[in-house]
Each structure stands twice: as structure tokens, then as C-alpha cells.
């Protein structure tokens, strides 16, 4: 219930109406959106019970490794009510054809299977907020100082998910496992997304804000 309360407000892509349509515009819009989402994600992480008591270095390590998984999972959750459309933001919904013409097809094709997976599970908002926090705590950063403290955070989030499923889905005792078994595909999708944006950064045609660049470089 705490995670539901601290869930961030909706965010808008606000594509620049003066820019000509095309891949540069689409990618500029997404990079700007991602930069603003990162600020929100960092603020959100601080509200996860147990996160703020980790050392600053460990907080940074977890976020540097999990930020794209958190971003992707948020996009996927917003896209659940749609049919093969990706809801990057409330005002930026892209179908396959639009993705093709705006240079977002690789990203689109990478995200759709994850949307289908969570649709099949009928993932609920409570499950989404817990999985997002679990993705952060379980980010497998190689630079963690206090492994025990991070393990404790993972355990408390895992326990919250188990408690929720025991009370809300007693008919499916394997639901926690089914949800956790989606995490490899989430990581795989996030890895593809990072590679996609890293190659865009290397091409240098799309402006990127400093925080987004900093987080991309941390994954390089």
C-alpha cells in the first residue's frame, strides 16, 4: 500500500510541434521523456521502504543498473489496456506502423512480447509497483558495498508480494513465481533498449539531456 501511495503521477511526452515528423523527432521526444522519467524514478526509489537507508553508493549502483528495467516496466504497464500499441506516455501512443515510420520499430518489437506476457498474467497495479521495486533491488549490480542490506530489501519486497498474492490470489499459489519468472524477459528487453539508445548516442544526431547520458554511460 505504501508503494501504491508513492507511485508517480502520469508523465507527458509533449512532442515539439515545430519539429518535422520523422525519426529524429521521435527519438528526441523519447530521450527527453526518458530524462524526465529518470528524475521521477530517482525520487520514487527514495520512497521504497528500506532504500533510503542503504549507503548513497549502493543507492547509486542499484539505480545505475536497473533504471531501464524500471522505465520499460512502466511503459509496459501503461500499454496493457492497448492492442499492440506502446504507451510511452499518455500523449505518446505508438502502433507498429507509426513505429516503423518513426524509427522506433526495434524498440517496439522488443517491448511487445513483454506486454503480451503481462497481459496474459493480467498483472495488477499492486503487482506492477512491487515488481518495479523488486527489479531495482534485484539489479545484480557488481558494485554493491553492503550485500546484506540489499538482500534484506529484496526479502522485504518479496515478502510483500507473497503476502499480497496469498490474500488476493489464493486460487493460484504459483502466481508469485509466474510474476518473478517475467524478470529475465524484462532484463533482456531493457538491455536491448539500452543498446538502442547507446547507438543513437554514438550517432550523435539526437540531443540527449545530461542525466539520461549519465545513466546510459553507467550501462556502457
Amino acid at each position: 500500500s505504501h508503494l501504491l501511495v508513492v507511485e508517480p503521477e502520469k508523465i507527458y511526452a509533449m512532442p515539439d510541434p515545430t519539429m518535422p515528423d520523422g525519426d529524429v523527432k521521435a527519438l528526441t521526444t523519447l530521450c527527453d521523456l526518458a530524462d524526465r522519467e529518470l528524475v521521477v524514478i530517482i525520487g520514487w526509489a527514495k520512497h521504497i521502504p528500506g532504500f533510503a537507508t542503504l549507503s548513497l553508493a549502493d543507492q547509486m549502483s542499484l539505480l545505475q543498473s536497473a533504471w531501464m528495467e524500471i522505465l520499460v516496466l512502466s511503459i509496459v504497464f501503461r500499454s496493457l489496456p492497448c492492442d499492440d500499441e506502446i504507451v510511452y506516455a499518455e500523449d505518446y501512443v505508438v502502433d507498429e506502423e507509426q513505429a516503423r515510420i518513426s524509427g522506433l520499430l526495434d524498440l517496439h518489437v522488443a517491448i511487445v512480447p513483454l506486454v503480451r506476457r503481462y497481459k496474459k498474467l493480467r498483472m495488477e497495479k499492486e503487482e506492477f509497483v512491487m515488481l518495479k521495486a523488486i527489479a531495482l533491488a534485484n539489479s545484480d549490480s557488481m558494485h554493491i558495498e553492503n550485500i546484506e542490506a540489499v538482500q534484506k530489501l529484496q526479502d522485504s519486497l518479496h515478502e510483500a508480494l507473497q503476502d499480497f498474492e496469498a490474500s488476493q490470489h489464493p486460487e493460484d499459489p504459483r502466481r508469485v513465481g509466474k510474476l518473478l519468472m517475467t524478470l529475465p524477459l524484462l532484463r533482456q528487453t531493457a538491455t536491448k533498449a539500452v543498446q538502442h539508445f547507446y547507438s543513437i548516442k554514438m550517432q550523435g544526431k539526437v540531443p540527449m539531456h545530461k542525466l539520461f547520458l549519465e545513466m546510459l554511460e553507467a550501462k556502457a
Binding site: L56, M60, L211, E214, A218
Partner: peptide
């Protein structure tokens, strides 16, 4: 930490 200035700053901000 110097390399990750913005993340560091945002985490240190109390808001």
C-alpha cells in the same frame, strides 16, 4: 561519483 554527478545530487536532495 564525480562521473555521476546528477544522480548523486538527486539522491542527496531531500525532496
Amino acid at each position: 561519483k564525480e562521473k555521476h554527478k546528477i544522480l548523486h545530487q538527486l539522491l542527496q536532495n531531500s525532496t
